[in-house]
């Protein structure tokens, strides 16, 4: 299991944070994701064999968010 923290700068509200969490957790290989609105951060615990930061970034972009390492 790998842990990764990155920023989602365009979180606008609590809802955005919740949705981003959902999006990340739907990904195959993501064990746990925690997105907080206050500091616009995402903490993800994932299996690096199954997914990657790039995949997460793509999934978030589909929903109109960006991700920065």
């Amino acid at each position: 299991m790998e842990k990764l923290t990155f920023t989602i700068p365009d979180l606008h509200c609590e809802g955005c944070a919740e949705r981003s969490t959902n999006i990340l957790e739907r990904l195959d290989g993501v064990q746990e994701a925690k997105v907080t609105f206050e500091d616009k951060s995402a903490k993800v615990e994932f299996d690096s064999d199954k997914t990657s930061f790039d995949e997460m970034k793509q999934a978030l972009e589909k929903a109109n968010y960006t991700a920065e390492k």
Binding site: H12, C13, C16, R19, N64
Partner: peptide, 15 residues
């Protein structure tokens, strides 16, 4: 329920 802000609305529209 988890549509909270204008940004969410925009995303839904766009998608």
């Amino acid at each position: 329920p988890n549509m909270h802000c204008e940004h969410c609305v925009e995303t839904i529209n766009k998608t």
